[in-house]
Design a binder for these strands. Sequence first.
DNA 1: GTCTAATATTTGGAAGTTAAAGTAAATCCC
DNA 2: GGGATTTACTTTAACTTCCAAATATTAGAC
Lengths: 161, 161
Amino acid sequence: MSFDPLAEAHRQWSARWPEHADHMAAVTAVMRVQQLLLSRIETLLKPYGITFAAYEALRLLAFSREGRLPMGKMGERLMVHPASVTNVISRLEGRGLVTRAPSPHDRRVVLATITPAGRALIEEATAAMHDAEFALDGLSPAQARTVTEVLHMIRASVGDA
Amino acid sequence: MSFDPLAEAHRQWSARWPEHADHMAAVTAVMRVQQLLLSRIETLLKPYGITFAAYEALRLLAFSREGRLPMGKMGERLMVHPASVTNVISRLEGRGLVTRAPSPHDRRVVLATITPAGRALIEEATAAMHDAEFALDGLSPAQARTVTEVLHMIRASVGDA
DNA sequence: GTCTAATATTTGGAAGTTAAAGTAAATCCC
DNA sequence: GGGATTTACTTTAACTTCCAAATATTAGAC
């Protein structure tokens, strides 16, 4: 019925470089699925006024013992550039969902702390994410595990994890 | 040896909401692998002065019969927003890799045409991509096909393809 | 105790993405 | 034909990412 651009790309590649078509298709599939899931998740989160990046940052803070983490630590956990942490925390701070203060022990360090409003919001948003199974409600838990395993193969192949 | 943030996130989720942990982990894995692959590919393409988005646009034009496509058609094939096409084509045009002209048949339509310089560049860049197997050189063709199949399951589950 | 080097964060800039609004051109319809 | 609708693209604005450079502070070396 509907035309699939990924299938078409694979066809084009196969016609010219058949020995590389499978790798190309795998990369394209990763990119497309990421785009799809991100889009669905952002739609899901829109009622709460946060993006997925903000969701992950808040979630991480809410999980932490004191509701407080150094910016640098957050970057490591979220696996993003320090500048990205500054960016997302600044926006959350502007909305009163997080506060920011220099660490008393090391004044180079900035500690982000989730506020009660932030906690309330993240719990609501998490409930919505659960309802939608993180935009993967069409998959069984076993299928979800298969996805993770197969992608772990890629992560391992490039030295990540 | 090295701490894996994804494994840690899965652990946190399992402790609180074990029934949702697998779906969460799958989404996280998709996001992470996309980030890894994109990063590796952009590094690969850096010597050619183009990003992955630009690579895909040029590749698409080079595949086309006349080396020329309407912007709208490119957006469909690349599965991106029209504004993204405008964006990337503007940059390629600035570098002389593409020209832009209104269609003689329908003056609403803008045709992007790859230049000889654009063709030369995309062939070099493609050779580099082939050398690196699209940043998946650690995977066999069969493994790559497995990745595509598993991700196709997700695409199907959300009504894409 | 300085002086130097390393670390933590922010800032500014280039790219990408999307959504929404604006412009222009073609088509539909009466 | 003329008016309304649809289509194609661009623009603007918001947000994400990263990198590279600047700032500040701590730690190490002599």
